[in-house]
């Protein structure tokens, strides 16, 4: 019978195909709009990862903010700034083989280093307990991390003011 473990692995594989395939699609698609949609696919893959890891709040926030707000922003920018079937863009870069080599080297280095670290694995019981919850996040956010909480609002204010100033100049 299909065990829980197998299902999780299957879902993980599907999500990996979505995320990495989406990323590949972003850089290799010739149509800018399709690139943006591949980005959305990739972000949805990340939502799946969070859900698989039982980080429900993060999954939903990723969907809400990244897919629902930032992807829409990116799509707006694309749709507003160029015609529909603009010249099919060929994403080319003559030195792609050097880049590929560097990327491969970085990958190998990361693989070796990460393989040698003794990762502390979270206790299954600890993950199941109801303490790992949004309520606890709230208590931490308004307790020890109070200053970053307030600074975030200032950051958002600054971002909005900056964007409005830039847009007003157009």
């Amino acid at each position: 019978m299909l065990t829980n473990q197998m299902v999780q692995i299957l879902v993980f594989v599907i999500l990996t195909i979505m995320t990495l395939g989406g990323g590949l699609g972003v850089v290799s698609s010739r149509n800018l709009f399709h690139s943006a949609l591949f980005l959305v696919l990739s972000l949805v893959g990340v939502v799946g990862y969070y859900a698989l890891l039982d980080a429900g709040f993060l999954a939903v926030v990723q969907l809400l903010i990244y897919v629902g707000a930032i992807a829409v922003l990116i799509l707006f920018a694309i749709m507003l700034s160029r015609g529909l079937m603009a010249r099919r863009q060929h994403q080319r870069n003559e030195q792609w083989w050097i880049a590929a080599l560097v990327v491969l080297l970085v990958f190998v280095v990361l693989l070796v280093v990460l393989g040698q670290v003794d990762w502390p694995v979270a206790d299954e019981q600890a993950l199941l307990s109801p303490n790992v919850s949004v309520g606890q996040l709230g208590q931490v956010l308004l307790g020890p991390y109070m200053i970053p909480f307030e600074v975030i609002s200032v950051l958002l204010l600054a971002a909005l003011v900056g964007a409005i100033i830039l847009a007003r100049e157009t």
């Binding site: 959305v40 939903v60 926030v61 969907l63 809400l64 897919v67 629902g68 707000a69 829409v72 799509l75």
Partner: peptide
């Protein structure tokens, strides 16, 4: 529920 609404925008 709110997040799924974002998919509708897309």
């Amino acid at each position: 529920v709110v997040a799924i609404g974002g998919l509708g925008e897309l």
